[in-house]
């Protein structure tokens, strides 16, 4: 002990010099990080300018026919027009809200059903074996076609869109929840049982939290599918919604409005992704930081 302390003793002068040297190293590292970040942003902006500028120039010189493919300035004015003058089916906000409602309800119903069925089948070999083939069959059919059936059965209100979105979401979440339950650590499971946990307690304390990593990972792509379900439903037949705006613009040979609606949708999806990411951070806060995050913390 005493030898260790003498060997690490340094004079104050040494310590100050070491401190200066360390802060110089830290500053150099910080500058390198900043330079790298600036280069990345320059690359990103440059790429966008290249693509949009190329498209615009191509359209103006008629290399790309703007009648079919639109042009960025046209998309921008279509976007402004949508927000300023609204559409034949009410203001653009109303239409966004309708589509969002359908997607959100579909997402909620599909996700909850997917988790419940996935966790149940994941825990029961018997049920999994009974329903396995049917799930495979239903998964193999192109489910988007169900949209037509739902429209025929339930009319052109919001219900068929919600159902279509829910069906699309259900399968993604279901497969992930099922797999997540199957991957639960056997030792942990045995330990909980030996400690006297009931079936319900095992599910609550061990299985669901353990499967949560898988379930949340599936929610990211699931929300995109919920939007797809709502839009396809609206294209098939609706009174309001972004899908209807797209379909109407298509009938009017107005590609710029189609692109404008696409832009709105991608912003909606990005916002939803952001919310899901926050949820993920909150629910999975126990996880060790990923290596990249950890090195950023220095």
């Amino acid at each position: 002990m005493s030898t260790a302390s003498t060997s690490t003793t340094t004079t104050p002068v040494d310590a100050a010099a070491a401190g200066r040297e360390q802060s110089a190293v830290a500053q150099a590292a910080k500058r390198a990080v900043l330079r790298r970040r600036a280069a990345i942003w320059a690359g990103r902006i440059g790429f966008a300018v290249l693509v949009l500028g190329g498209w615009e120039v191509g359209a103006r010189t008629n290399v790309i026919d703007p009648f079919f493919f639109g042009q960025p300035s046209g998309v921008w004015s279509a976007l402004v027009n949508l927000f300023q003058n609204g559409t034949e089916f009410g203001s653009v906000y109303e239409n966004i809200w309708v589509t969002m409602q359908e997607a959100l309800f579909g997402f909620g119903i599909g996700a909850v059903a997917g988790v419940i069925v996935g966790v149940t089948l994941g825990q029961s070999r018997f049920l999994a074996d009974v329903f396995g083939p049917y799930i495979k069959i239903v998964n193999a059919i192109p489910r988007i076609v169900l949209g037509s059936i739902f429209i025929v059965a339930f009319g052109i209100g919001t219900l068929p869109k919600i159902l279509l979105a829910a069906v699309l979401v259900f399968f993604i979440v279901f497969f992930n929840a099922f797999q997540g339950v199957r991957e639960v650590d056997r030792n942990i499971l045995a330990n909980a049982k030996v400690l006297g946990a009931s079936r319900l307690q095992v599910t609550k304390h061990v299985i669901v939290p353990s499967a949560l990593t898988w379930i949340i990972a599936s929610l990211h792509s699931a929300f995109g599918f919920a939007i797809v379900g709502a839009l396809v439903g609206e294209v098939l037949g609706a009174q309001q919604g972004l899908g209807l705006i797209i379909k109407n613009a298509q009938n009017n040979f107005d590609p710029n409005t189609v692109f404008a609606a696409m832009l709105i949708i991608s912003v909606l999806v990005l916002v939803a992704e952001w919310v899901i990411e926050k949820l993920e951070h909150y629910l999975l806060s126990w996880r060790p930081a990923a290596p990249s995050e950890a090195s950023n913390a220095i």
Binding site: N191, G196, Q201, S210
Partner: peptide, 28 residues
């Protein structure tokens, strides 16, 4: 009834704090 197990590999729940892990036995 009345047995406890300890394995070579950790059987702790990684998503629960140390306190919550130890408290599981009485909660069960």
């Amino acid at each position: 009834d009345g047995v406890s197990f300890m394995f070579q590999a950790d059987a702790l729940l990684p998503w629960k704090t140390v306190l919550a892990n130890v408290a599981l036995g009485p909660i069960f």
